[in-house]
């Protein structure tokens, strides 16, 4: 590749880069489990589950833990990705701090809503 490794990969010392990589690698396993469990082992069109199937699925303790973990990891990865994209605009230090705080709030709200959603659905099974 034409560019040097430092340019092509970013600084491995960067904390955000490290966490993006860690959550990204974790997501490879979690997304595969999520996609296969939801769309490849179900006979319906497009592999989509019926209402009762979804409730039974999400109320299984191990699935609840896996899906909860998936929600947390994917949200962290998404917020770190958004941070990188927004920082590409060449923001000042003050604006970078604001962006970081806003993304923490958005991430926490996303995880809270997701857990409330799967918790309510699991309780209906």
């Amino acid at each position: 590749m034409a560019t040097g490794p430092a340019i092509a990969t970013g600084s491995p010392r960067s904390r955000s880069w490290r966490w993006t990589a860690i959550t990204g690698v974790s997501l490879l396993a979690l997304v595969t489990i999520h996609m296969v469990a939801h769309h490849f082992v179900v006979d319906e069109i497009g592999g989509l589950r019926t209402y009762q199937h979804v409730l039974d699925y999400i109320s299984t303790p191990i699935i609840f833990v896996i899906e909860g973990g998936f929600l947390v990891v994917v949200t962290i990865h998404a917020m770190l990705g958004l941070r990188s994209v927004l920082f590409d605009f060449g923001l000042s230090e003050r604006r970078r701090r604001l962006v970081e705080r806003a993304l923490v709030v958005l991430g926490v709200a996303t995880v809270a809503y997701g857990f409330a959603l799967i918790g309510i659905l699991a309780s209906r099974a």
Binding site: G4, T9, F87
Partner: peptide, 12 residues
């Protein structure tokens, strides 16, 4: 030529 602190892959 080294990337600036906090800047991500490809930006430079």
């Amino acid at each position: 030529r080294s990337p600036r602190q906090g800047r991500d892959a490809g930006v430079d």
